[in-house]
Design a protein around this nucleic acid. Sequence first.
DNA 1: CGGATCGAC
DNA 2: CTATGTCGATCCG
Length: 837
Amino acid sequence: MKKVGNSSCNDGVLLRMGLNDNKAGMQGLDKEKINKIIMEATKGSRFYENELKKDQQVNQRIEKMMQLKEKITTQQLLKAQLQVDKLVIELEQSRNLSSTIVHIDMDAFYAAVEMRDNPELKEKPIAVGSMSMLSTSNYHARRFGVRAAMPGFIAKKLCPHLTIVPLNFEKYGKVSKEVREILTEYDPNFTPMGLDEAYLNITEHLEERLNWPEDKRRFFFNTERTTEKGGYSSSPVLFEDNTPLMDDHPEQRDQSVANSVVFGTSAEEVVKEIRFRIEQKTQLTASAGIAPNTMLAKMCSDRNKPNGQCRIAPERQAVLDFLKDLPIRKVPGIGKVTEKMLKALGIVTCSELYQQRALLSLLFSEASWRNFLDISLGLGSTHLEKTFNEINTAEDQYSLCRELCRDLAQELQKEGLKGKTVTLKLKNVNFEVKTRASTVLSSVSTEEEIFAVAKDLLGTEIDSVAPHPLRIRLMGVRVSGFLSEEEKKYQQKSITSFLKSGKETSFLRLHAGKSNQECFTKNSESSPRGSFFDKKRAARQLNSENPPNETVGKQLFHDKKSSAHFVEETKKVTDLQNSNVCKIFTCPVCFEEQSSNNLEELNRHIDECLSGSLVKDTMEIPKNDNSRESTLNFLPQIKSENVDECQNKVDQLAGADQSASTSDSCTSSSTEKFTQITSDKPHRERQPSNLSDIARNVCMKQCLLPKRISEDNEDHFEKTEHTEETSSSCFFEAKGDSVLVCPVCNSEQKTNSLVSFNRHVDVCLNKGLIQELTEKKDFPTKTYNMENSNRVGGLSRGQQCTNPSQGTKRSGLTTSQSVSKKAKSSNSKHTIDMFFK
DNA sequence: CGGATCGAC
DNA sequence: CTATGTCGATCCG
């Protein structure tokens, strides 16, 4: 790829000004002219200087990224490709097309409201905001380059006739409420995003609607509106551009009532109906997107803006077609910086994003590239935040708290972690956040232990407002100050640093719903934003925070195990390899000191210990899914067969092994430590299944987890009821022989034994690895680079977390229920090869 | 924890 | 005449 320097530093500034995609209209200005005016107005200002500086920083990041890229060998790329493609298979399997998500977006909302209320503004270019900053502009003004987030005084230079109307949030809130009243009829759980946007899940509505009589789908034109000059009611021209209501629907022609429209039962019709009603009620137009998930719906609603709608059919191919040439910048969550970085790699469209998936996995943090992958596959959340009424009885609050503690305890025990500080986080109905922490002398990890502390904290808060009830909308429980039990006993430098990095927090929390109908924008607590961040944070630690929605939870788990561990552990091992400091290790199995500077040797020793200890000892592998996970990791590219079949085999295999290991009781930190030490070896994770459970457990941490795992993390309120059945839905029926293609040598392996197949893959893989190891001592394996990228050029981990729609979107994995449902659907048999053909 | 960063609105 | 916002959230030091 080329040097990055060729993009001028003005780009950033102009981008911020929102000019790069300005569509110049007849009466407006063309792009160059606009840029010129802006430059003149902005040049030399402090603001501009700062923009330049920031831009330079981005350029430097890009520079570093490119340097990193140079070092990547084709071998590494190949390996990365395999890894990523394995994930792709899983993701494909989890694709859920069964929901109908709608994104409603009011057109130029503030400006539209102002124009409605002051008809004199109607034909003029206007913007809403102040001389310092504009919030939005009408379409007329946009032709002059006047856009949201532009200072008013610059806008005035672009468009001297521009009328700037001050913000009037009260009014917008009122209108917004009117709109929400309509939306709630289609999805009582809809998620407002600010004042002018909302997500709806109309899946249920569609079902019900099928049986609705025509009259229930009939809506009347609003005739009683006093025609304010220019007359709204005289010409109810709806959907002028793309949706002639009367044309293609016979039932609409038959209408007996003159002044009414009957809408059909399809998703499109529902959305037309919504938009019709919004317009009738508020005189404002909205655009809408209909798609199988929130990310797609949002991008869709952008397509036919203003006053239009667009649908992505719930078919895999339709999704891919939509994405094919879509510029990544259109994706919510990909902002200016990410766009530029990807552009430096030659990535502009979503299909390019997919094509470069292997490279991206080497250059970006796990969270980042997985997000990219979700995007390029068109995966997103189908889950709109569950809402429930505010919890205000002490009893409910305690039981909720206990639930959280239980889930948290599970997570902790799986990780073999104990913490000394328990933090309770509460957000009341007024959005005030309180955290109350308590540090205890002995570490806690079980539900009871944690709850004992959390309960006190909660009790204190309840008492503090007594006799009034504590009215909360969010509760979280966190455990921090981790200390592995044996940490002190077996302190080793690398491990210590590892634990340190992971010692931050583990936070389980839950949103207590959006019972509020407040219209005020940016602090809607129940927006996916929070949960998304939670997820991401959780993802990068070995701790976890349980987000309020199940899909997020799933992903969280996914990330947590596979990436956080993978990365951290690999990093640590890399440290091991590179530093001369620690040459004495304690074997985590036999607890004997092993003096060696040869990691190979050490690992061999541990292996021996393991196979020995398996027989006599039943270590605490968290039993349920882990072994399956690990095995799943061996899954190669699967040909012409439902992935579930493999899954099934995996399950069978795992089941056998499972019985050997009694469950849990957890936290013999030996396992933990073992994990840490050994997990570095990339090929170890592919040890064939004759390895012990413990080894599998180790593997698991590096692996991409199958989505089922995340059942634990489902919405806590539903969890108790569903846990049983969802778990059982994890097992799939056996279906017979599989044809598997070795992802390394590409040859077909006909077998019904995953074990033997894996053995084959191992052989292939190890060949490559050995080669690589010998040719390069300091091999930048995939994870190694990922770690690096966090420090240097790559996106900082937090970076990709920033956006609300992303939040839901990125939890691309589906709920376990939908998995089982979906398992039968035809998509799962597509393989990645079909992508973007 | 504060400062820097990112992205949405 | 000037004049470039606010928020949530992460991460690093």
